[in-house]
């Protein structure tokens, strides 16, 4: 009895030490991971004049909202932000419509050539943006469509990942739900709109958020297509500010742009984290 008690208390003691070490190591790691983000946010609330004299800290040494006010009033950031919103919302809606339709077709309807088309579309997952951005640039030049929102949307909609994700979600829905409806004489479009789409709202949310993030952060294509500063997305606009640090209004303002550019992504991520994680998992499960 006594030996047993002594034994279990050493085990407990060891366990607590182990747990403490575990959390300490993980905590230090997580802290280091957060430093860049916290530092940027802190500097966005620090006056430019202060940052010209000293290195910004993890907490602002002097607090101000001035950087945000100036940003909203005089910089191009609100315009770029709006461009990003238009392009990302447009791309997302487009992807949701065409990918869910295609995913429905490939997972729910039997027709000749389906296997071939499925393979043909999935093969597109292996084509990277870098392989097509030059020919795309030439095509949009020929159409005189550079520096438009549509030009920034269309190439992103061609990515087969959405169809792939929707296919997997549609497959998971039991067949008899749909069969019951078709016995009642409903046609495919009605079945799709009235029965299948409502069932895939979680999937559509997942795909929608994922597409929105990808589109918002898109870099190579908008870099070559949107060359006029009033058509920049926020990602490209921010990149253009980095080219001339010397002329920039100050470190605080620069970090404010970065915070504003990331705010929608971080908020989306915090509220819909579950869906983004789901998209990452489904999108890579071959």
């Amino acid at each position: 009895m006594t030996t047993q008690q002594a034994g279990s208390s050493t085990i407990n003691w060891k366990k607590w030490i182990w747990l403490f070490t575990f959390y300490a190591v993980l905590g230090v790691f997580a802290f280091i991971w957060l430093v860049p983000i916290v530092w940027a946010i802190s500097m966005s609330f620090t006056p430019n004049t202060v940052l010209a004299r000293q290195i910004g800290g993890l907490l602002p040494t002097a607090f101000t909202f001035e950087n945000y006010e100036t940003l909203m009033r005089v910089s191009s950031v609100p315009r770029w932000f709006l461009n990003s919103m238009i392009v990302s919302v447009g791309t997302t809606l487009g992807v949701l419509v065409i990918s869910s339709m295609a995913g429905y077709s490939l997972s729910r309807i039997n027709f000749r050539g389906k296997t071939f088309i499925t393979v043909f579309i999935l093969a597109g997952l292996m084509v990277p943006e870098q392989a097509v951005f030059i020919p795309l640039h030439i095509m949009f030049s020929e159409w005189g469509m550079h520096n438009t929102h549509v030009a920034l949307m269309l190439p992103r909609m061609a990515i087969p990942l959405g169809t792939f994700i929707m296919m997997q979600f549609f497959r998971a829905i039991p067949m008899d739900i749909e069969e019951a409806a078709s016995i009642d004489g409903a046609n495919r479009l009605t079945v799709y709109l009235r029965i299948m789409l409502p069932l895939t709202i979680p999937a559509l949310t997942t795909l929608g958020i994922f597409t929105f993030v990808l589109s918002w952060n898109d870099f190579l294509w908008p870099l070559v297509s949107a060359t006029r500063s009033d058509m920049f997305t926020i990602t490209i606009g921010l990149a253009s500010l980095q080219g001339n640090f010397a002329q920039s209004e100050g470190l605080g303002s620069l970090m404010t742009s970065a915070v504003v550019a990331s705010a929608p992504m971080l908020l989306l991520f915090l509220f819909f984290q579950r869906y983004i994680v789901q998209a990452v998992k489904t999108g890579t499960r071959f």
């Binding site: 870099f219 926020i234 971080l266 989306l268």
Partner: peptide, 23 residues
């Protein structure tokens, strides 16, 4: 912890480089 480690992934490349260039 998962949220913390994943949060940097949703930042765009120009935000990441802006912060790290200064850092």
């Amino acid at each position: 912890f998962r949220t913390i480690f994943f949060s940097s992934y949703v930042l765009s490349i120009s935000v990441v480089t802006l912060i790290w260039f200064m850092l």
